[in-house]
């Protein structure tokens, strides 16, 4: 049963000057959902990044609240646990004035065999405006869009994509280095199982960066070359060419057979350590978006080296997710805003 406040749709907020800047979603944004970066255009991605930058500025570094989504309800539908991403989406929604409902698969009717589609439909019936979904299976957010009439944001679907993580990485690089055009970005590690890698790959290449995928052949398929991406199995040779390195976590839990003989051997070949850092450009930017395995993807001395490593991107994560939420479920020209709809109505 829905908690009572959920059905009570409206709370009027006084509009501020910054709210007026976000009164209406630009008409150049034509998507209902944010499912992946593969099918977005460079303009779409730039609009997302610019919107994130505007939110970051208007909210004093994502600290103050707006009312751009006041009266809207966002559901966090997480079939896989993730404290960081879920919290980030929840905060982003609240910064925009939306109500947030958390729905975790554990302890819900899902464990009794209800299908994810039924679950989502029940949520829709409660009158929500957007669904943020995390699921272990690629394509599940896409399937939801066929069954729901509300905006869907993919918060990670198995090894497929994690568009807001990709955007956040790109946003951070852009903030640090100005433009993506002409940069060389090395994505290192478990490409096979990394949704972050895929979202980075599409987003970066669309914005004019060159991407090199690097790791052992068991985790980095040669076939990526057929999509025009450089593949390397030797970190030391590509390192001097990279402006940015994105270190992706080895997902030991997703492997059928170990993809390399030992962690020791992997670290020897691919861990970012002080010795390797000396071979790199002095202004190398290192991103480590996942909860990293210290001593595997990166050694402790590099992990704690503050000038190069961007470990925690809380603020940028918020800005990007505010942009994603607002673009997918914010008011559009010619469409009734949530606040002008009668209570209980759904799209």
């Amino acid at each position: 049963m829905p908690p009572a406040p959920l059905l009570e749709r409206k709370r009027q907020h006084p509009m501020t000057a910054s709210d007026h800047a976000f009164a209406e979603v630009p008409q150049s944004w034509t998507h209902r959902h944010l499912l992946d970066l593969e099918r977005l255009s460079a303009d779409d991605i730039t609009l997302l990044l610019d919107t994130a930058a505007a939110f970051k500025q208007a909210t004093n570094g994502c600290r103050t609240k707006l009312s751009a989504l006041a009266g809207s309800t966002v559901v966090n539908l997480f079939f896989e646990s993730s404290t960081r991403t879920k919290t980030s989406f929840a905060l982003a929604a609240r910064r925009l004035g939306a109500d947030v409902v958390d729905f975790s698969a554990a302890g819900s009717s899902l464990s009794k065999g209800e299908s994810f589609i039924d679950t989502a439909k029940n949520l829709e019936a409660m009158g929500v405006d957007a669904v943020v979904v995390r699921h272990q299976t690629p394509g599940t957010p896409h399937l939801l869009t066929e069954h729901l009439g509300v905006g869907v944001i993919n918060a990670g679907d198995g090894p497929h994509e994690h568009p807001t993580q990709g955007l956040l990485d790109i946003f951070s690089i852009r903030e640090q280095l100005g433009s993506l055009e002409g940069l060389t970005v090395g994505l290192v590690g478990d490409i096979a199982h990394s949704r972050t890698a895929r979202s980075n790959l599409w987003g970066l290449t669309k914005l004019g960066a060159k991407v090199i995928l690097c790791g052992p052949p068991t985790l980095v398929s040669q076939r990526w070359q057929e999509l025009g991406v450089e593949v390397s199995h030797d970190l030391d040779t590509i390192l001097p060419r990279c402006h940015v390195l994105n270190l992706l976590r080895i997902q030991f839990e997703r492997q059928n057979t170990p993809p390399f003989p030992s962690v020791r051997e992997y670290a020897h070949l691919y861990a970012m350590d002080k010795r390797r850092l000396r071979r790199a450009r002095s202004d190398l930017v290192i991103l480590a978006p996942g909860p990293i395995n210290r001593g595997v993807e990166v050694t402790a001395d590099v992990a704690d080296c503050p000038q190069s490593l961007i470990l925690n991107q809380v603020t940028n994560g918020l800005a990007v997710r505010m942009a994603a939420l607002w673009l997918t479920c914010g008011p559009r020209a010619g469409e009734p805003t949530p606040s002008s709809q009668p209570a209980g109505a759904s799209a």
Binding site: P138, G139, G158, H160, R223, W224, L227
Partner: peptide, 10 residues
């Protein structure tokens, strides 16, 4: 297993 599965992460 091919280019499509690679892109879809399936």
């Amino acid at each position: 297993e091919g280019l499509v599965s690679l892109a879809l992460g399936l």
